[in-house]
Structure formats: structure tokens, C-alpha cells
């Protein structure tokens, strides 16, 4: 091959590559703007505060209050995070500082498979195990009556799905803590746990919070598994054993019918935009913190 054709080929491929880079970098903006464009109709129809804080949801009458959905989303996410926190933290510490290499080699596939199981499978598991368990045992234990399809079920299923996601980030973060610091603390006579408690956890506190921030944004957008177990009843839930209706479930459940009503269509696009904004904001804050921490070490 002579020099000219090689050069030409290189330039063509470079052009292709450059185009792809631009496209990918612009993609979040393209997504956000197309959703904003579609939700323009509803934003002109009702004010933002009305959309976010009204609990009247009557799409056919043109009233769109997202408050019940936002509350459900927040509750499900909160329960999911609370339940997953101790398991993730303890496992991450154990796998990083106590476990042997064999244990880590054994656990890595376990974590990977947990991460790889599709959310619809977690949903099926939730329906088979978690929902009846809540309806029969957990809710009566707290003195409530529940079908099992509830905020609690959504939170529990979500917490299991969050484990591999948060755990991987935590392990990564603990590894950025310098071995020197660890050794220095040990040499001063501190025990392993004391060192972890006072040195590692303090040193990586911002990172740990960021890991849960990423988990939070993950949880906020999880759709199918939660939708399958959460009950999907519109209304602000009074307790955790009542059904809820999170934002992603709202979008997923109403897609087929809404096309005939432009305002409804716009409302659902607004829900998607809202979801995206919350998730992206939490993502950016958490990622920035992690990047900052890693650059410091």
C-alpha cells in the first residue's frame, strides 16, 4: 500500500472517530432537550410548583399533580438505600481488609452475577418471595394489613439490586486509601477494626457518601422490578405497607394509552425529564467527589 492511500484511509477513519466523539458528548444534551421539548406543552399548561406539589392526578380532566409519584419514588429509594447500606459497607470492608484472596476470587463472580440478573427477574423473585412474606408476616408484625404489594416490597427488592452496584464502588474507594496510613495506624498499636473505624472510614467518608449517591440515582430510576411489586395505586402512601406508584412505574404503565391525549403524553415526558434531572444531578455531584478524592491520593 502506498503512502497516499494509507494517509487517506487514516484521515477518513479519523473523521468517523471525530464525528462519533462529538455525537456521544452531545448525547446527554440531545436527550435532555428532546424531553424538554416534549414536555413544553405541560409546562405551559400548569406551573412547575403545581406539577411538583399538587396531589391531584386526573389526566382526563387535565390535572397533573406529580406529588404522589414523587413521594412514592422517594420512599422506595430511601428504604432501598437504608436496607442496603449495612450489607454493602460491612461486605466491602470485609472483602477489602479481612478476606483472603481466595474469598475475593470466590465472591467476585457472585457479585457479578447479582449485578447481571435482569430487573424483571428480580421482579419475579419479589412477587414469589417478598410480596407474600410482607403480606403474611412483616406487615402483621407491625400491626398493618397489607396485600404485600407495597412501598416496602419495592424497597426490599431494590435493596438487593443495589448491593452489587454500590459494593463494587465501595471496594474501589477503599482501595484508594493509602496502605501507609493503614500501616501507620497499626504500628501505633491500633487494632485492625480501630484503624478501619478511625482512619479508613474517616478518610473515605466523602467517597462512601458518593457511592451511596450513585446508588440513590440508580434506585430512583429503577423501573420494572419496582413496578412489579409496588402495587401501582395513585395516592400519597400513609405507611410503608401501602401500595405506592413511583415515577418510572408511572411512565412505564401509561405509555400505550397516552398517545391520544397530547397533554398526557407531555406529562409523561415531563416525568421522564424530572427523573433524568434528579439522576444526573446526583450522578454529577457523586462522580465529582470521587474524582476529587482520587486526584488527592
Amino acid at each position: 500500500m502506498n503512502y497516499k492511500t494509507r494517509k487517506l484511509k487514516d484521515q477518513l477513519v479519523s473523521l468517523w472517530i471525530r464525528f462519533m466523539v462529538l455525537l456521544v458528548v452531545a448525547l446527554p444534551l440531545i436527550i435532555a432537550f428532546s424531553l424538554l421539548y416534549k414536555s413544553w406543552l405541560i409546562l405551559g399548561h400548569s406551573s412547575l410548583s403545581e406539577l411538583l406539589f399538587s396531589s391531584v392526578w386526573r389526566p382526563l380532566a387535565g390535572e397533573f399533580g406529580f406529588f404522589p409519584f414523587i413521594v412514592s419514588s422517594v420512599w422506595v429509594t430511601f428504604i432501598g438505600l437504608i436496607l442496603t447500606t449495612p450489607i454493602c459497607l460491612f461486605s466491602a470492608i470485609f472483602l477489602t481488609y479481612y478476606g483472603s484472596r481466595h474469598l475475593l476470587r470466590f465472591m467476585q463472580p457472585v457479585i457479578d452475577i447479582l449485578a447481571g440478573i435482569p430487573s424483571v427477574i428480580y421482579g419475579v423473585w419479589g412477587i414469589l418471595v417478598i410480596v407474600p412474606a410482607i403480606g403474611k408476616y412483616l406487615a402483621p408484625m407491625f400491626g398493618y394489613e397489607s396485600s404485600g404489594f407495597s412501598i416496602m416490597a419495592g424497597g426490599i427488592v431494590l435493596s438487593v439490586m443495589l448491593i452489587p452496584f454500590i459494593l463494587n464502588i465501595l471496594i474501589e474507594i477503599f482501595r484508594t486509601v493509602h496502605q501507609d496510613l493503614f500501616d501507620a495506624s497499626l504500628s501505633l498499636g491500633a487494632s485492625k477494626w480501630q484503624t478501619i473505624k478511625h482512619v479508613v472510614l474517616r478518610k473515605s467518608f466523602a467517597g462512601i457518601v458518593s457511592a451511596f449517591g450513585l446508588g440513590l440515582s440508580r434506585a430512583f430510576g429503577e423501573t420494572i422490578a419496582v413496578l412489579m411489586v409496588v402495587g401501582n395505586v395513585v395516592g400519597v402512601p400513609e405507611n410503608l405497607f401501602q401500595p405506592g406508584y413511583p415515577l418510572p412505574a408511572l411512565i412505564a404503565n401509561n405509555y400505550g394509552e397516552m398517545l391520544s391525549i397530547p397533554m398526557f403524553d407531555s406529562a409523561l415526558m415531563f416525568a421522564a425529564l424530572l427523573l433524568m434531572v434528579v439522576v444526573v444531578v446526583f450522578n454529577i455531584i457523586s462522580r465529582r467527589t470521587i474524582i476529587y478524592l482520587e486526584s488527592k491520593h
Binding site: V24, I31, F220, G221, P248, I251, A272, L275, V279, I291
Partner: peptide
Amino acid sequence: IRFVLDILWGIPSIVYGAFGFT
């Protein structure tokens, strides 16, 4: 670019679904 990719990675699939639909 890595940062943008991380952001894209975090966007829930239902949002991609809505975007794909538009």
C-alpha cells in the same frame, strides 16, 4: 469524555425508552 460516559451510564433505561420513543 469519560465523565460524560459515566453520566450516560447512570441515566435510567426508562429515560432511554422515552427518548427512543420521541
